[in-house]
Design a protein around this nucleic acid. Structure first.
Lengths: 271, 271
DNA sequence: CGGGTAATTGAATCGAATCAACGCGAGTGG
DNA sequence: CCACTCGCGTTGATTCGATTCAATTACCCG
């Protein structure tokens, strides 16, 4: 799970598109594609927490059946389309969110325009938790997104009432912390190639949780997003992708990549 | 407060030497020094939590007087000398720690020897909290250090028994998270000069909490530590320090620097 | 005073950024 | 249907900032 604080975001890596919707059709040339069958999205998201599609992936999986029913009274479902903004940097933080479908991009921009993408939130990921009343991170939708929303106040009450949920969130936060530290090592000490490899491996692992095992890694974000996630430029990202492809570690497929040699890719990656 | 997970460490910036022990004597040439009067340390640390020197700076300040008395039964005081190891990467995590005197260095080393310093824990900082039973970070003493130690088990029991302590720790974790994200921006997008300036500003602010306001920023760590903290090399750190000194933003004093123009230094810094 | 480590400074090198051109596919409009 | 544009990605040539390599200097501790 990805826990994202409102004041900046918790990240780690994250990627890809809608889980079961991800087509892995064989294209004419025999390569698998990461493209979705269509741009439409099954917006049949949970009206009831009990049958929420990401219940088992999210924080909510530490709530009992009857507790989910309670929770249900407080949550709101919302849908966003590509580029819609969930919340903006330096804006009051009133809600916490769990992504139920799609991918959310978290980012932070400096006054001079330099940008860092903190992470990509996949289905099941928690975001918007803030250490003050203002978001330090912006969040927007990469393609169609469905989320479930709870007011910060209600969420705080819930945490106070359910100590086991608090413990769980606490454990997740600590875990995310360690991931952030790996990312610091990556940005502080990793070469462009290492960053790229780490990104792919990490995306693959995170997507596996949601979608199950697959050599395909869909990349719904642009090269610019990847560059800003890795602290590189688009040109460098592009060059590293082609380098890794030339070395037969990956192949480029529509809307993503396919990992050919995971062990070697993992050996290159840091973290 | 600095919360440091065992699996890697929570960091942000941190610096400096022993609080009240820091001498700010005027040296012959009129420059203030950050040097301590002697290498001896007043090891009169708290036998009782109630009169712990860092009680007001640490997590413990959310415990009532009688709660501190309870806590007292579980804590152990320990002293370390320069370079002593508190715990090592990939080693069982049995304790959590609060620094009471001195500075602790948290770092992480890759198999190939590349190193990243996650942070420098000052008096009052909490460290060693892990998301699993193994430390992902090494911690050692920069000069003489006194810490207070509690077994992870006892600490967990304490958290379970005192919900307000849990909430407090949770809030601290989230705050540290946002700091880690600022650091990601720094390492991912900042120039050498910006990193250096941010380091000094941050160190100054953290030290202010412990020692009170001062333009002097003691730097008990080596240039190599700073370099590994900022993702640079010692040579680059050295060059940037002299650059900032030439520009009259700082002056180099024994065992640290003195900030001459904080506003301009802050303007250069990221975060 | 000397020996050793840490810090500084300089010159050469390297990796990623920048600048610039081109290719490609999706949309648009004639 | 094709020409055109527009955004995005790739590729190449060049530049620039930080690293690396190599001395030199400062400083601490005996």
């Amino acid at each position: 799970m990805l826990v994202v604080t409102g004041h900046h975001t918790a990240p780690a890596l994250s990627t890809l598109a809608r889980s079961a919707l991800l087509a892995r059709a064989i294209s004419p040339n025999g390569q698998t594609s990461c493209r979705e069958p269509s741009r439409t999205m099954k917006y049949a998201t949970a009206k009831h927490c009990q049958n929420c599609p990401v219940q088992s992936l999210s924080l909510c999986n530490s709530l009992a059946h009857d507790e989910l029913a309670e929770l249900n009274a407080f949550v709101t479902d919302s849908h966003y389309k590509n580029h819609d903004i969930l919340f903006d940097q330096d804006t009051p933080a009133n809600w916490v969110y769990i992504v139920t479908e799609g991918v959310v991009r978290l980012h932070k921009t400096l006054p001079d325009g330099r940008r860092l993408v903190l992470g990509f939130a996949l289905p099941g990921d928690f975001l918007g938790f803030s250490d003050c009343d203002v978001h330090a991170t912006s969040a927007d939708a990469l393609g169609p997104v469905a989320i479930c929303r709870i007011s910060r106040e209600a969420f705080q009450n819930l945490l106070d009432a359910k100590p086991h949920l608090m413990r769980r969130l606490h454990a997740e936060l600590i875990h995310e912390f360690t991931l952030a530290q790996d990312r610091l090592m990556l940005l502080g000490r990793g070469s462009a190639k290492e960053r790229m490899a780490a990104f792919f491996v990490n995306m693959r692992n995170r997507w596996k949780r949601v979608n199950g095992q697959s050599a395909n890694v869909a990349l719904p974000m642009s090269r610019l997003d990847i560059a800003d996630f890795l602290g590189l430029t688009i040109e460098t990202v592009s060059r590293m992708v082609t380098t890794l492809a030339r070395e037969r570690l990956i192949v480029i497929v529509p809307d993503g990549i396919r990992i050919l040699d995971l062990p070697r890719l993992e050996a290159i990656a840091i973290g």
